[in-house]
Amino acid sequence: MNIFRLAGDMTHLASVLVLLLKIHTIKSCAGISLKTQELYALVFATRYLDIFTNYISFYNTIMKLIFLGSSFSIVWYIKRHKIVHRSYDKDQDTFRHWFIVLPCLVLALLINERFTFKEVMWTFSLYLEAVAILPQLVLLQRTRNIDNLTGQYVFLLGAYRALYILNWIYRYFTEDHYIHWITWIAGLVQTLLYADFFYYYFQSWKNNAKLELPA
């Protein structure tokens, strides 16, 4: 464990807690894409298949349980909660996210480190996570104004993967044969997708203006 990875995990944890806090306290999911949340639930479900078979550490298991629990409860809140689901704007959240699931699955079948079920599922979860934010970014473009919590959620989500890239660089230089091209490229693509959001997020933060994304 290095500082970059710990910071990345904490940032990722903060992003899901900010979202849960927002939904649970103000009982609203305005501006949140259910599609992105469903994709993230699928990412964790396919990435943590070995949660009970492959014990790494107490920390690792706890964090996996938190990510699984939070992502599925966020989906439940938006879909099932009697008050929260009313603030879900399904007319705006129209990204056909199942269309990106299939290419990720096909790609995972073609490009992976080992052709076993768990390894293909794990690779699929990496590819899917790289594009899971797309429905949310599309929704933000549409709804233009972003409330603070949603902006912070997306920012923290992008920042966690950027910190993971620093972690991979650190591990590459400090550990022998630590080479995971698939993870690195998927992580880089994921972070680049946030790039323009980061730009507008910092602009609004610098000018102390409301965060607005161009049409």
Partner: peptide
């Protein structure tokens, strides 16, 4: 290290 131990990241 064994392959699955390489999956020590979240």
């Amino acid at each position: 290290p064994p392959f699955n131990l390489m999956k020590d990241e979240l």
